[in-house]
């Protein structure tokens, strides 16, 4: 006996397959990263990509942005950057004798903020409003961001010189922190082969090769379908238990916020839809718990000194909580 899906997810499945194929032309491996990025796109969440230099953080973000026919802008964060350099500023217009607001690079659909931790807290704080409320207020005027608005930021966890740790309030605004790891040996050989081939064929600009495979309207429709994905009461309780446990864990100095619970719910719905289901299972929640929660929690100093990581503590919490069945 087969159950028929109540929501037509064929269009979403097709879009996901096309995006994977398009990105896969350049990116070898990193399937989990691409799946999480797709989940974030459909769950309407911002993404923080973390990885050592040279693991294609920026390239993945750029390629994925190119697959959607939207505006794309890139901001390279530097230590001398001011909030007005990101948001925009009021410029005096001698013709009208008035101040006109000149929009900054944040006014785009997909914004890639490269090396986000290179700017001081005041510049990072400028992103609070726009990331959460999709609007910018300047000189008493509020400017709404156009649909879709997605921030993809990258940061390098190794380098400490000239970097600033992201404030907790900003970290909380990212749906996922995706840690990009090194490719496997086989994947690295494929990367070299692909690079060599493009070099010989003199087509070494991978972004130029990309084609948009999803329109804004399509994305809007697919997001609407994702929102309809069913979440059983027990799954909601399961999400709440996980988040609650982070606040009661003796290993954590700071637990996850209610925003984290909502993020886990929305992300689980998107992942379920990508997998062709119109309902969420505990599997979806468990799989997304780490990318959603790890950057929102702070370990106690004792736990940090022991060498434990946020991933370890989340894994312990998941082991403790009964899966609804």
């Amino acid at each position: 006996m087969e159950f028929e899906s109540r929501i037509d997810l064929s269009e979403l499945h097709e879009a996901v397959t096309n995006i994977r194929a398009e990105v896969g032309k350049i990116i070898i491996g990193q399937q989990n990263t691409i799946d999480l990025l797709l989940t974030a796109i459909f769950a309407d969440g911002h993404v923080l990509l973390e990885g050592v230099p040279g693991v294609a953080k920026t390239l993945i973000a750029k390629l994925l942005a190119k697959t959607i026919s939207t505006n794309f802008s890139r901001i390279q964060f530097t230590p001398d950057m001011m909030p007005s350099d990101v948001l925009g500023t009021a410029v005096y217009n001698p013709k009208t004798t008035e101040f006109d607001f000149k929009q900054g690079p944040i006014f785009s659909n997909i914004v890639l903020i490269d090396e986000i931790n290179r700017s001081p807290a005041k510049t990072q704080a400028a992103l609070f409003e726009v990331m959460e409320e999709r609007q910018i207020t300047n000189s008493g005027t509020t400017y709404q961001m156009s649909f879709p608005f997605l921030v993809m930021a990258t940061q390098n966890p190794i380098e400490q010189e000239g970097t600033y740790r992201l404030p907790e309030a900003q970290l909380d605004r990212f749906l996922f922190k995706i840690v990009i790891k090194y490719p496997t040996f086989e994947e690295e050989i494929k990367i070299l082969q692909g690079n060599h081939k493009r070099s010989v064929e003199q087509t070494n600009n991978p972004v130029a090769m990309m084609q948009a495979v999803m329109s804004i309207e399509q994305l809007q429709n697919l997001r609407a379908k994702v929102r309809l994905v069913l979440v059983e009461e027990k799954i909601l309780e399961y999400i709440a238990k996980i988040t609650h446990e982070t606040r009661n864990s003796k290993f954590l100095y700071l637990g996850a916020s209610p925003r984290a619970s909502v993020a886990l719910l929305n992300a689980s719905k998107a992942l379920a839809a990508i997998r062709g289901r119109d309902f969420v299972t505990p599997e979806d929640v468990q799989e997304l718990a780490k990318p959603v929660l790890c950057h929102r929690i702070i370990l106690t100093p004792e736990k940090e000194m022991e060498g434990s990581t946020a991933e370890d503590v989340i894994a312990q919490i998941l082991q403790k909580i009964e899966v609804p069945r």
């Binding site: 309780e237 709440a240 238990k241 609650h244 446990e245 606040r247 009661n248 003796k250 290993f251 106690t300 004792e302 736990k303 909580i321 009964e322 609804p324 069945r325």
Partner: peptide
């Protein structure tokens, strides 16, 4: 030993585990 010098969390888990 972390529980010795850490303030006991009075906010215990408010939910029941099924324990089925």
């Amino acid at each position: 030993f972390s529980g010795l010098y850490r303030k006991k969390n009075t906010n215990e888990i408010p939910y029941e585990t099924l324990g089925e």
